[in-house]
Simulated assay, not measured.
Amino acid sequence: MITERSIARTPVRPQLPTTMLTYAPDDTLAHRLDPRSKLAVQIGFAATALAHTGPRALVALTAVAGAILVAARVSPLEALYAYRYALVFLAIAPVLAALTLGSPWIDLEDGIVSARASYRVLLILFVSAAYVRSTPVRASRAAIQRTIPGKPGQLLGIGVALVFRFLPVLRADLRTIRDAMAARLGDERGAVDRAGTIGVLGLTRAFERADRLALAMQARCFAWNPTLPALAFSRVDYPVLALAAFLALSALL
């Protein structure tokens, strides 16, 4: 029987370094940018991607997304692997959109429209991957709190910081549970049984992590407005801000 204690004693097998995109210190162009500039580019890119659906617009957006990945030194294959679960839904959506309940049973036009929408979402995910890889968590919180004033900005900044820090830990816990099941031939059990075991143990770990996080925040006298890193625009930020403004304005054309 698989329990929390048995999982805790199970040695964890080494994982591949590209299991998930996280911040990695580097000296790329994206790392040198102010996080507010990168957030502006993300917003402008998402607005343009959702507004323009034509083939030429998709080609231009692909070039922009590729340049952003190069600027952050993020491999497209690494980004695809990190978003592999989202890719399943993006791939299924065009198939479901093309199916009809009557003749002709398959509507290629609806499928193509849905495929373009899925591709636009994929490009947005690529841009967000470059941001995550090139921006420290504290810098993201500082950018949000200094852009949105008052308690709403503080609450949003804290939420973003906790998600960036907490999500990789939960994913590591799920991998540990899965490896422990495989070591005890749990992978030979039914899919429903495996999913139920992973789900129950994963939720248990998540609640325990949340309790320990709350206790740690209290022990460290958690502050709503701590001393955050200083942010300042440099010369390389102004062309990026101009690109963000161009992308935002192009969404209105």
Rank of each mutant, 00 (worst) to 15 (best):
T3H: 08
E4P: 11
S6R: 11
T10V: 09
T10D: 05
T10Y: 04
V12I: 12
P14Y: 05
T19S: 08
T22L: 04
P25Y: 09
D27S: 03
H31N: 12
L33R: 02
P35A: 10
P35Q: 14
R36W: 07
A40F: 02
Q42C: 10
G44C: 10
A49R: 01
A49W: 01
R56F: 15
V59M: 07
A63D: 12
A65Q: 01
L69F: 11
S75H: 02
R84K: 15
Y85M: 11
Y85V: 12
Y85H: 11
Y85T: 10
L87K: 01
V95M: 13
V95W: 07
G102W: 07
I106F: 11
D107L: 13
A117Y: 05
Y119H: 05
L122M: 11
V127W: 00
A129F: 02
A130W: 00
V132I: 09
R133S: 05
R133Q: 08
P136C: 00
R141P: 04
I144H: 03
T147Q: 01
K151Y: 09
Q154E: 08
L155W: 00
L156A: 00
V163Y: 10
R165A: 15
P168V: 03
P168H: 04
L170P: 07
A172Q: 06
R175Q: 09
I177Y: 00
R178I: 03
G186Q: 12
D187T: 14
D187S: 07
D187G: 10
G190D: 07
V192A: 14
A195P: 10
G199N: 13
G199H: 12
G199W: 14
L203M: 12
R209M: 14
A210D: 03
L213S: 01
L215V: 08
A219G: 08
A223D: 15
P226Q: 06
L228W: 13
A232Y: 10
D237E: 15
L241D: 03
L243G: 13
A248T: 07
S250E: 09
L252N: 15
L252K: 15
L253E: 08
